[in-house]
Nucleic acid binder design. Structure first.
Lengths: 232, 232
DNA sequence: ACCTGAACACCGTTCAAGT
DNA sequence: ACCTGAACACCGTTCAAGT
């Protein structure tokens, strides 16, 4: 009875890489990078620290694996159908990443880090391949495909990193109220700046309160796409 | 003799905020964020840990102050003369930030963090004001100035963050050789990817070795400027 | 093979005490 | 006012020992 034997043999394996990754992501979501401690992990998983190291190597690899897990899931949204324009496909990927970071603020720092340090991994390659395929259809000549894809990736990463709220802001019950107050405070502070030294800040002080992050992101994408279409 | 009295009184103040900031930046430059420990600071400054806390509050504030110091210096390069185009001025600011991050890799993470957390501070305001002033001359209508400046900032921050090499790479004697080898490894790894699943990566595998980070950055800026000029 | 948990080296931060 | 340095709580990581 090999089935029964195997079952018995594995009865004590309560831990799995997946379970570890899930609790790590849970910890990160609730309290940012600072909340991901080995001791918090052992508490939630009811094990010793050695058990975790048996499965994941170290904290940094755990963070990378969590990043990979979230990003891979975000990118796995089905590609738009064949009829969709390249612009639609780019927007779909960009918004998927935008939403992933909105849900997991710790991703902002970690995503940038991983693309820098591991250009060969599925995160970097996945994002580049998915976006890059479209630039040809956009009218970009072949020898400039790398420049074009890089520009797109750089803009998207910069924008979504900037839209992630500060880590550890577990406080607010109503996140939207926090957001309103945050922008109110910011625009008040900008208004208090010296008008002669900061004419531009004064000119836009009303716009920060009215703007919508997501719409502004799409405007930025449109600007870049427009520029790319004219890249010769 | 008030002068003499003051001098005597201060003879024991060997520490100053400026000296602390300088050694912190030195530590960060040589070994990344991980190298900035209070103990390393007390060693270099030959003091106790309390002395540092007397001047700077805590480690996070020290990191923010170091960021502010470097960015303020980078932005203080004189504005281009009155004859310069808005495009020239934007390029000058963008390259100043690019160079600052090239020299201080730890800035990538910290700059993004500070802009998110402290939109009222001199770093955020300095960058926005300096870049934002130009968008009007670029042809962007007033109600869209905030969108335009944000797009510019997001692209620049994304691009320079992505160009910062990994922290703690103090190893190489010749940084250019490291760079070459890094791109060689990357392009080899990309070539090894499945050609059917990753047609785009295969298409650009030669371009990564030939490209120049700085030129690619300027191309990206040109793309965004081009798009902004058509923003209505 | 998988897990336990004590032990280690190293953190950031505080604070009574000195000058 | 400015600085010292021991003490504290808390890290990530290792490893002999168990099953």
């Amino acid at each position: 009875m090999p089935t029964r034997a195997r079952r018995t043999q594995r009865r004590n394996q309560v831990l799995s890489r997946e379970r570890i990754l899930d609790t790590a992501i849970g910890l990160l979501d609730s309290g940012g990078e600072g909340a991901l401690t080995v001791r918090a992990m052992t508490d939630r998983l009811a094990t010793g620290s050695g058990a975790i190291y048996y499965h994941v190597g170290n904290r940094d690899e755990l963070l990378d694996a969590a990043t990979e897990s979230v990003i891979t899931a975000a990118l796995s949204t089905r590609s738009a159908g064949a009829r969709a324009t390249p612009e639609d496909e780019i927007r779909a990927v960009a918004l998927a990443l935008f939403d992933a970071i909105a849900e997991h603020h710790w991703l902002a720092t970690r995503l940038t880090l991983q693309i820098i340090r591991n250009p060969v991994g599925p995160v970097t390659v996945g994002i580049f391949e998915r976006l890059g395929r479209q630039v040809g259809a956009l009218g970009v000549p072949r020898p400039r495909w790398f420049d074009a894809a890089s520009t797109l990736v750089h803009y998207i990463l910069g924008a979504i990193s900037q839209n992630a709220r500060v880590e550890g802001d577990t406080s607010g019950i109503d996140p939207d109220a926090d957001r309103e107050e945050f922008f109110d405070q910011t625009s008040r502070a900008w208004r208090d700046l010296d008008a002669e030294s900061y004419p531009f800040m004064h000119a836009i002080v009303g716009q920060i309160r009215e703007h919508d992050d997501r719409e502004q992101f799409l405007t930025g994408i449109a600007v870049v796409l427009d520029g790319l279409a004219r890249l010769r």
